[in-house]
C-alpha cells in the first residue's frame, strides 16, 4: 500500500468521524443530506458483498466493516434518532436520489468486466459513489451559514477522492499487475471534479477566515 492510498483512506475515515461526532455529541445533522448518506450506505452494501468470501488483508476487512457499520448508523441517526432527526433539513434536501440510482444501475448492466451478480453490483457501486455527493452539494448551496463540521466533512471527503486518484496514478506506474479500466478512471475523476467548486470556496473562506458560504 502506498502513501496516497493510506492518506486517502484516512481522510475518508476522518470525514465519517467528523460526521459521527456532529451527530453523536452535538446531536445535530443540520446541513447534512440524508439522500447522500443513503446512497453511500447503498454504495458500501453493494461493493462489499465479498467481505466474507475474499480476504485481502485484516486492514481491508476492518475498514470494510467500519464503512458498512458507520454508513448504516448515520442513516439510522438521521431517520430515527429522537433529537438528531429534528435538525434534518428535509425541505431543502429534495434531490431525488433514484434519479441517480437507476442510471448507475443501467450503466453497470451494460458496462462491466463480467456479467455476474457480484461484478455488476460492484461496478454499480463505483458509478454510484461517483455521483452520491450531488444531493449533499445541492443542499450545501441552499444552506446559509454552513457550520464548520459540515464544511470539514465535505472537505475530507473531497480530499479522499483526490488522494485516491494520486494512488491510481502511482500504482499505474509502479504496479505492473495494476491496470485500471477506463471506466473506473472516468467515474473516479468525475467524482473528484464534482468537488472542485466546493474546494475553491472552502479554501477561500479559510484563507479569509470567514464562514463558508456557497453562492446560489
Amino acid at each position: 500500500m502506498n502513501i496516497f492510498r493510506l492518506a486517502g483512506d484516512m481522510t475518508h475515515l476522518m470525514s465519517i468521524v467528523v460526521l459521527l461526532l456532529k451527530m453523536h455529541t452535538i446531536k445535530s445533522c443540520a446541513g447534512i443530506s440524508l439522500k447522500t448518506q443513503e446512497l453511500y450506505a447503498l454504495v458500501f452494501i453493494t461493493r462489499y458483498l465479498d467481505i466474507f468470501t475474499d480476504f485481502v488483508s485484516l486492514y481491508n476487512t476492518v475498514m470494510k466493516i467500519f464503512f458498512l457499520g458507520t454508513s448504516i448508523s448515520i442513516v439510522w441517526y438521521m431517520r430515527y434518532h429522537k433529537v438528531v432527526k429534528q435538525s434534518y433539513d428535509k425541505d431543502h434536501d429534495t434531490f431525488r436520489h433514484y434519479f441517480l440510482i437507476l442510471p448507475c444501475f443501467l450503466l453497470a448492466l451494460i458496462i462491466n468486466d463480467e456479467f455476474t451478480f457480484r461484478e455488476v453490483l460492484w461496478t454499480f457501486s463505483l458509478y454510484l459513489e461517483a455521483v452520491a455527493i450531488i444531493p449533499q452539494l445541492v443542499l450545501l448551496q441552499r444552506t446559509k451559514n454552513i457550520d464548520n463540521l459540515t464544511g470539514n466533512y465535505v472537505f475530507f471527503l473531497g480530499a479522499y477522492r483526490g488522494l485516491y486518484i494520486l494512488n491510481w496514478i502511482y500504482r499505474y506506474f509502479t504496479d505492473s499487475h495494476y491496470r485500471r479500466k477506463g471506466i473506473t478512471w472516468t467515474s473516479g475523476i468525475v467524482q473528484t471534479l464534482l468537488y472542485a467548486d466546493f474546494f475553491y470556496y472552502y479554501i477561500r473562506s479559510w484563507r479569509r477566515n470567514e464562514r463558508l458560504n456557497l453562492p446560489a
Binding site: R5, D54, H177, R179
Partner: peptide, 10 residues
C-alpha cells in the same frame, strides 16, 4: 482466492 487489483482497494 486471488483478488483483482482494483478490488484490494476500498
Amino acid at each position: 482466492t486471488k483478488v483483482a487489483a482494483a478490488k484490494d482497494e476500498l
